[in-house]
């Protein structure tokens, strides 16, 4: 699943996801009819609208293949949101069936494919934001394990790692002041160790944090973990 944000803004993160999966031997299908996981409407409280999109998505990804998403929040939506939105509906059992096939990218690599060490080099200091939707799951650990195994990559530690970046979808619109303040606090912490780039496994957080950096005229790069994994491979000629 490509995610709507990659569709609209972050095509390179989606490309990197495909390249990384192909490097691991997967054949990647991209059903052209896909749109979005339905999270925006669901989180806004419009569950009727969300159900329309969920049903569309479930239909588009019909079959048995694993569904891999380069976004913790979309995966979380599938795991927990689909269940709630379809609660009491005739097709409620579609939710758990769909969830069982769905993987967040790093979880898929580390736990699905059992790849724990990542080859290649990446000579940069990275501040990694474990996005909130991976809270209490093994996804964040998976991402950190992969990053930690890359030659040359230095991970910055910083304060209040458990705190949210402040995005929250429509929250960032209806609560512009609190949301931006949260983002600034997050960035302050992340920049403590003077990283070369900030990274995450969810483009939504990076959209928000990057938006603040841009507004403040700070040129600090933001990268999706798939881009790091791909670039590490490329630097060693493991990928053309």
């Amino acid at each position: 699943m490509g995610t709507c944000l990659c569709d609209a803004f972050f095509d390179d993160a989606a490309r990197a996801t495909v390249e990384v999966l192909e490097y691991l031997g997967c054949t990647v299908h991209f059903p052209e009819a896909q749109t979005c996981c339905a999270q925006p409407a669901f989180n806004a409280g419009d569950w009727a609208a969300a159900r329309r999109v969920i049903r569309h998505t479930v239909g588009v990804f019909d079959g048995e293949l694993p569904i891999v998403i380069p976004s913790g929040s979309c995966a979380h939506m599938v795991y927990h949101g689909y269940d709630l939105a379809l609660e009491g509906e005739a097709d409620a059992d579609a939710a758990p069936r769909f969830a069982r096939r769905t993987w967040e990218l790093c979880d898929y690599i580390v736990n699905g494919l059992e790849v724990r060490e990542w080859p290649g080099t990446y000579r940069k200091k990275i501040a990694f934001h474990r996005s909130c939707h991976t809270r209490g799951t093994r996804t964040a650990e998976s991402a950190l394990a992969l990053l930690g195994s890359i030659d040359g990559l230095e991970l910055c530690t910083f304060g209040e790692q458990e705190q949210c970046c402040g995005f929250g979808g429509t929250f960032s619109v209806a609560f512009p002041n609190i949301s931006a303040k949260m983002g600034r606090i997050k960035l302050e912490h992340m920049r403590d160790g003077d990283p070369d780039a900030i990274a995450g496994s969810d483009m939504a957080c990076l959209l928000h944090l990057g938006g603040i950096l841009d507004r403040e005229g700070v040129a600090l790069p933001r990268v999706h973990i798939a881009q790091i994994l791909r670039d590490a491979l490329k630097s060693e000629g493991l990928l053309s």
Partner: peptide, 17 residues
């Protein structure tokens, strides 16, 4: 309200597809 403290990145709709 959003843009007051953040900026959107350039729109690249369809590029990945």
């Amino acid at each position: 309200a959003w843009q007051s403290s953040r900026k959107l990145p350039p729109f690249r709709g369809g590029a990945f597809r």
